[in-house]
């Protein structure tokens, strides 16, 4: 299994770069994973990442894009609950990239 090193500690990742043990996640690891995706993290990025982590804690799954968009709209407002806003933050797919940065598995139904 591949691994990454952040602040002298090693973390296992799978073949697509997703963190294997989500319990090991912290903000430094999130920032490192963001770098590997060429995403520069801003407050707006963290808001989505933290939303995803909360969603995972509540339902034990990473939501599909459509579901993420709707759920974010409900919680953070309609101006953020649309795919344009989310794709601007995470150009290669909000569910896929944001989930990776959040240390979650790839969303079910995401190919």
């Amino acid at each position: 299994m591949a691994s990454i090193e952040v602040n002298g500690k090693s973390y296992e990742i799978d073949e697509e770069g997703y963190l294997v043990n989500l319990g090991e996640w912290n903000e430094e690891v999130g920032a490192y994973l963001a770098q590997t995706e060429n995403v520069t993290m801003t407050e707006q990025h963290w808001e989505v990442v933290n939303f995803l982590r909360d969603y995972y804690n509540e339902f034990q799954i990473a939501p599909a894009v459509r579901v993420l968009t709707k759920a974010i709209g409900k919680k953070l407002g309609a101006d953020k609950g649309n795919s344009q806003y989310l794709y601007e933050l995470f150009p290669y797919g909000p569910a896929k990239q944001a989930c990776k940065i959040a240390g979650l598995p790839k969303p079910t139904g995401c190919v």
Partner: peptide, 14 residues
């Protein structure tokens, strides 16, 4: 084992 009871609660979002 990972429990999945909570995931049934997400079905509404889907």
């Amino acid at each position: 084992v990972k429990g999945f009871e909570k995931t049934y609660g997400a079905l509404e979002d889907y």
